[in-house]
Design a protein around this nucleic acid. Structure first.
Lengths: 339, 339
DNA sequence: TTGTAAGCGTTATCAG
DNA sequence: CTGATAACGCTTACAA
């Protein structure tokens, strides 16, 4: 309602000075005028138009985050990290679900760019050999021209800063834990086919098994990132041959799915079979699942902080090497030592 | 980069005509000019500044949703509904976590208003006798002055349209189901103290028990909306006396928490005790929890649609009576008939 | 059918 | 220290 012009009129100064006191610029203003303007603003309930500000400064206090599906706890934790940091800095976060479609990521990025978002954060993992990635890369570049800083939370073939967790190492460390506990026959329930994260986690598992001389006892089975996939995979394992020492799922949800299947089949976990996952979602803690904690919240928060800093600090768009945040093994009750 | 002015220059027309063809106004434009402008826009990769548009039209294609905590699946499903609808209409959704603090809701609403959001959706339940609600109400009114339409997904003392589910009836229907299955001694695990939703759900439970002449066998115990709360409550029930016929939790998470506690204690569910929740979150389906499905996704989607329609259709700000979307009992495996 | 021009609410440059 | 004033990019009467 009340605009800067209104305030300036009420205070008997020019809009220029009103602007100067109301936005804490470095420009000097006499104490007297300052207080007059402040009083007027207060009286009129003035609140600046973020739109006008963004239009003229060519950058907003909007931070976008593009996830695959906000209902997936993996992403909602990331989004929470983004929003907490954004809010603290007076930014507001824009959210978009891309359902793992690269084409959606592109269009969503574009509409966020049209709002001159200060930055947009890509939370989802890409696909291997995705023919659309170049297009995304181009959109990211175009957005950068318009002043929006993209940040990816996974390594993808886009030219932008990366803040990520080490999926491969996470799987590796988890496998290492199992191996050192005496497990030998381990089956790995893979993530969704074609996703980079899937590949990385499988590789971590296989690498450690190979180093342990257990390559022949390692087995990878099809899976997915949800309860059902883990459940189904466990059922298949149950049906096919005698029990492995452990089942490692590509993520927590699948692990919990497997866990349920096993227990429904009256298999003792961890007595007969150990079960572990990756991510450390809230549900993992609840069911006592051994897992590796990924810095999801921190990833979101740090990415947001980075776009905020880029705005305030000098426009030093140094891509730099990927920032890799540490993960942490969290042994709980679904795994046990094997004699 | 490329602005309307650039396009108009490239096409050899005025910015007015360029604007007219590029935004599909009703204003007549010759086929020839139209194609020239289109071509120019295409060539330059023109994309309108949503900021400038919003500034001049005094309304944006931004829809805000304020939740308690996006990590809570209850809210992420709502947010998903909002975003799907927004996206379909070319809007972008702004998300904010208020952590159940009314004061945060107020400030978040204000910053969304400063971006001239077309609307903001309040997803969280309020508190009973919340001294800050009047303040919120005032902020909502002020926002409306600026053209932002607020919508609440729960009944609160704010003057704005309400699109909601009937918490009381949901609990009532669930209890009815249990009663008709022959359960008599039922304990109700309450939600967080002070929340309106908590009161409503408890009331629904109590109402049905009273009608069934089972008021004396109905018992309410302290709880909460998360796993831990349900778990703890179940433990307390277990410790205090002989088993009830059923445990109804104020929501699914708490129900699953209770379920786990019971099973860990080697109680047969539903053999000895039935367990049920409310919400029908993904986890409920997974564990086979009997629950009542609340139209969470629909609530979000419909609220978003309403702000979108308000923008396109006439500015008919008829508050009208609350819209109540239907819920549905979902019997699953954690409840069984009592002889 | 097309163009001119007045804003929308700020910031920022340049003179005073 | 303060004030005009020109942008920012677009929409929309009002003219032509």
């Amino acid at each position: 309602m009340a605009s800067l012009a209104d305030v300036s009129r009420e205070a008997g100064v020019s809009v220029a000075t009103a602007s100067r006191v109301l936005n804490g610029a470095t420009h000097p203003v006499s104490a007297d005028t300052r207080s007059r303007v402040l009083a007027a603003a207060e009286r009129l309930g003035y609140s600046p138009s973020a739109l006008a500000q963004a239009l003229v400064t060519r950058t907003s206090r909007l931070i976008g985050v593009i996830v695959s599906d906000i209902v997936n706890p993996y992403f909602s934790v990331i989004a929470r990290g983004v929003d907490d940091m954004s809010t603290r800095a007076g930014y507001v976060t824009m959210l978009s679900n891309a359902d793992r479609r690269t084409s959606s990521e592109i269009t969503r990025l574009q509409t966020m760019r049209d709002y001159r978002a200060a930055g947009v954060i890509f939370a989802g993992s890409g696909y291997v050999d995705d023919p659309r990635t170049p297009e995304l890369a181009k959109a990211v570049a175009a957005a950068r021209e318009r002043g929006v800083l993209s940040i990816s939370l996974t390594e993808r073939d886009i030219d932008c800063p990366v803040i990520t967790a080490d999926n491969r190492a996470a799987a590796y460390d988890l496998t290492d834990h199992l191996v050192s506990q005496g497990h030998r026959r381990i089956v790995f329930v893979e993530g969704p086919a074609g996703m980079v994260a899937t590949e990385q986690r499988r590789a971590g598992f296989l690498d450690r098994m190979t180093e342990a001389g257990l390559r022949d006892l390692a087995e990878c089975v099809e899976g997915g990132f949800d309860f059902e996939a883990g459940h189904a995979a466990a059922l298949r394992v149950l049906a096919s041959r005698d029990l492995p020492d452990a089942i490692v799922a590509a993520n927590d949800e699948a692990a919990v799915g497997a866990l349920n299947a096993l227990r429904q089949a009256r298999i003792d976990v961890p007595g007969q079979v150990s079960v572990a996952g990756i991510d450390d979602l809230p549900v993992a803690r609840f069911v006592g699942l051994t897992t590796v904690s990924l810095p999801l919240y921190e990833l979101g928060a740090m990415a947001a902080r980075r776009v905020i800093d880029a705005g305030t600090a000098g426009p030093a768009p140094e891509p730099g090497p990927p920032v890799v945040l540490p993960h942490r093994l969290v042994p709980r009750e679904t795994t046990a030592r094997r004699p």
